[in-house]
């Protein structure tokens, strides 16, 4: 039981870290909460059996970092990257379109 809960905590902590690095926003909170709960259970089990809790403390540290990253990503404003190349291509495309439209005569 103890080994199973510790293994689960490690897996969930890794998932938390991956999700918090990716721009998933608040979705990353799902594995973070699950990792925290399983970590807490593992911590209590280890404490009850008088075993070392160092590994769980390391996991809690990673979970805290993940939480910080997830909140940072979620609160980061939505921005669009407009690079010079895209602007130039758009300008070129508009000029080509204008040439194509030259023959058009509209009615009304």
């Amino acid at each position: 039981m103890r080994v199973l809960v510790i293994t689960l905590s490690i897996i969930l902590t890794i998932i938390s870290l991956i999700f918090s690095i990716l721009p998933f926003g608040y979705i990353a909170l799902i594995p973070i909460i699950a990792a925290f709960v399983s970590g807490l259970i593992a911590f209590k089990l280890l404490q009850k059996e008088g075993k070392s809790t160092t590994i769980i403390k390391v996991l809690f540290a990673i979970i805290t970092i993940s939480l910080g990253l997830a909140i940072y990503n979620a609160l980061k404003p939505n921005e669009i990257e407009v690079d010079q190349e895209t602007i130039e291509l758009q300008k070129q495309s508009d000029e080509e379109t204008l040439e194509e439209l030259e023959d058009i005569e509209i009615d009304g």
Binding site: P23, K76, N78, E79, I80, L101, E102, I104, E105, I106
Partner: peptide, 23 residues
């Protein structure tokens, strides 16, 4: 508004661009 030598047209442009964090 887009002007050619013969006409004045209206350009309707719709753009969809992912936020930079997804790029």
């Amino acid at each position: 508004e887009v002007k050619t030598s013969k006409a004045t047209l209206l350009r309707l442009r719709c753009k969809a661009q992912t936020y930079s964090k997804w790029d």
